[in-house]
């Protein structure tokens, strides 16, 4: 359980990182290392060069201006969980960041790393899809912006090009309103067996499921039935269209349960 040989570069700016990434083939960005290092130790990933982003200055800042949140990719899950602005204006994001792994993992793992890694059972990619966030991708070729909903392409697969770095995340604080979250994991800190972000408006509902199929699964519906049985039946029938990677019956059942729980949480909070 030791990685194959690699060389290591620590960069101080995004520009340096972008340059290094375009210069070396087989290079990988290293953020918190909470996903990449285990893969390297199992030799499932064998980059020849690691470009460490942890030395980039102010790569973990959070700002809120005119309803627009800008979060830089280097923020750790724990900082996201504790950040006063996030707690006040996007509480669901703070809450779900606190469900990522254990404290030690949250202390190192970063938002950018989680979003780029695209584990189907991860909270944060789904949160971004639910928030309809925009990701800024930077390379020597310049910057481009892509929506979270377009970014995810499949299992551990994203729109990120080999030379691109996810540098900033934007979303509207107001879009965090009325989104509520629930998940089920075998043990606290485990990846979710199933989780959901549910946003309930007067006339529309949005659900973003994670942990059930190969990537965050987002859908928009009309208003939900107020009657419990009818609502649960709807969740069950929606969940039956999900394609779980394993334990199909069980995960679909849980998907319906977490959707209902997220919904109920919302009703309690909004009441």
């Amino acid at each position: 359980m030791k990685p194959a040989p690699f060389s290591y570069i620590r960069v101080a700016t995004v520009e340096e990182a972008a340059n290094a990434l375009s210069e070396y083939t087989d290079a990988k960005l290293l953020a918190g290392g909470q996903s990449l290092i285990p893969l390297m130790n199992y030799r499932l990933s064998k980059p020849t060069v690691l470009i460490d982003l942890c030395g980039i200055e102010a790569f973990a800042s959070v700002s809120l201006k005119d309803d627009v949140f800008t979060i830089r990719a280097g923020i750790t899950h724990q900082s996201l969980h504790e950040h006063p602005l996030v707690r006040a204006y996007a509480p669901v994001l703070a809450e779900c960041a606190g469900e990522v792994g254990h404290w030690a993992i949250r202390n190192r793992g970063t938002l950018g790393g989680s979003l780029a890694h695209a584990d189907p059972a991860s909270e944060l990619p789904a949160a971004m899809v639910a928030l309809d966030a925009r990701f800024v991708l930077t390379s020597v070729r310049g910057e481009r912006t892509v929506t979270a909903r377009d970014f995810y392409l499949g299992l551990f697969t994203t729109d990120l090009a080999e030379d691109e770095i996810l540098t900033r995340i934007h979303f509207f604080a107001s879009s965090a309103n009325r989104i509520h979250f629930a998940e089920i994991a075998r043990r606290p800190g485990d990846f979710a067996l199933s989780g959901a972000f549910v946003r309930v408006e007067e006339s529309a509902t949005e659900i973003t499921w994670f942990g059930v199929s190969d990537m965050p699964y987002h859908l928009t519906l009309d208003a939900l039935p107020v009657e419990e049985k009818a609502r649960q039946a709807l969740f069950t029938s929606l969940a039956s269209t999900l394609e779980p990677l394993d334990q199909t019956v069980y995960r679909r059942k849980l998907a319906a349960v977490v959707a209902e729980r997220a919904y109920l949480k919302g009703r309690r909070v909004q009441a």
Binding site: Y42, R186, R187, P188, G189, D190, F191
Partner: peptide, 13 residues
């Protein structure tokens, strides 16, 4: 073959 698949009880359980 990893502790992500072989689940051990931890302090929370």
């Amino acid at each position: 073959t990893t502790l992500a698949d072989y689940l051990l009880p931890v302090a929370t359980e």
